[in-house]
């Protein structure tokens, strides 16, 4: 790697960690001007930075406000670089359909999982909140998802998760998708009980789990 390239990638990574959106945008333009590969810049620069943010979050150095601001900085850089990606670099990601069965606008956990999965190279389809079980299955079929991620904030709607698994079984689709669950009232034992493929306690966990399931 040329010295300049290495420096720009490091700058991108640092700008994400430093929550510096202006700098990610500016450096991304510089990457393009220098004729450096956009895909590599995302992977070794912006996503690398977001990985470090994930570590800082795990270590309780960063909390949710910081992670959200870092991810804004990352996405701003990605927007600049995206038009310069070659066709074959865009369509090969593993796909995840996620959503909240029932919840209010405080679906922070789900949003965090989405951000972390995206920065880890997954293609994420976010259905939003108050999503009926059938809709998860329909969307997963439509996009050819590898993983269905279910979250809920309320104990009374945990049955909706069981329902997703049941629909998959009834329609002989269970083997096609991995089902992962999370959210305030959910536990590993609940995941086992409903026959989900995994449970994640937080966003970093969800990435590890998703990687394991598709590897």
């Amino acid at each position: 790697m040329s010295e300049l390239k290495a420096k720009l990638f490091q700058d991108l990574s640092d700008a994400v960690v430093d929550m510096d959106e202006e700098k990610t945008v500016e450096t991304s333009h510089r990457v393009i001007d220098e004729g450096i590969d956009a895909y590599e810049a995302i992977e070794k620069g912006l996503a690398h930075g977001m990985d470090r943010v994930g570590e800082l979050f795990d270590q309780e150095e960063y909390f949710i406000p910081e992670v959200l601001i870092c991810s804004d900085a990352m996405y701003a850089g990605v927007e600049v670089l995206k038009p310069h990606l070659k066709g074959d670099e865009q369509g090969e990601k593993k796909k995840v359909v996620i959503g909240v069965i029932e919840g209010d606008t405080h679906d922070i956990g789900k949003n965090l999982v989405k951000i972390m999965l995206e920065t880890s190279g997954f293609d994420v389809f976010d259905l939003g909140r108050d999503i009926p079980p059938q809709q998860f299955v329909d969307k997963a079929k439509e996009v050819g998802a590898h993983i269905i991620g279910l979250s809920t904030l309320m104990t009374t709607t945990m049955d909706g998760m069981r329902e997703v698994v049941r629909i998959l079984e009834e329609t002989n689709l269970r083997e096609q998708f991995k089902v992962i669950v999370g959210g305030g009232p959910i536990s590993q034992s609940f995941a086992d009980k409903i026959g989900a493929d995994g449970y994640a306690a937080n966003a970093a966990d969800a990435v590890r789990l998703a990687r394991k399931l598709v590897s």
């Binding site: 929550m19 406000p65 910081e66 959200l68 601001i69 606008t105 405080h106 922070i108």
Partner: peptide, 13 residues
């Protein structure tokens, strides 16, 4: 609950 929570959390900083 009166300001979009994702914006709110970022704007705390």
């Amino acid at each position: 609950s009166i300001v979009d929570p994702m914006s709110f959390l970022k704007e705390l900083r």
